[in-house]
Amino acid sequence: MEATIAGINVKVNEEGYLTEFSQWNEDIAKEISVQEEIGELTEKHWTVLKYLQNQFENEIPLTIRKVGKSGVTDIKEFYALFPGGPLKKATKIAGIPKPVGCI
């Protein structure tokens, strides 16, 4: 599927996740963030998003537990930064696939 996010044509899956990370940029992140009702992205948001992207590029599966132990943020803060499903929303904003795990 194709979609126009922040004026750019990108490939997405049926849930709106970017399927090609190389197409991601910060404007896209900002627009998805508004759609997901996260609002304006603070410096802390960007730090977490960069960490998630880094894990993705190193092919490390993402879980809440790992994010909590990352030293980048803790579980409480992660939920506060991305309310209503942090891993689901943060990965969408970061332009990486939705994690498939149950934990």
Partner: peptide
């Protein structure tokens, strides 16, 4: 192996997540 936390850690995770 499946990255499932032990009971004490898991319960704390749930509490921290709200």
């Amino acid at each position: 192996r499946l990255d499932m936390p032990p009971v004490d850690e898991f319960m704390e995770m749930i509490s921290m997540s709200g």
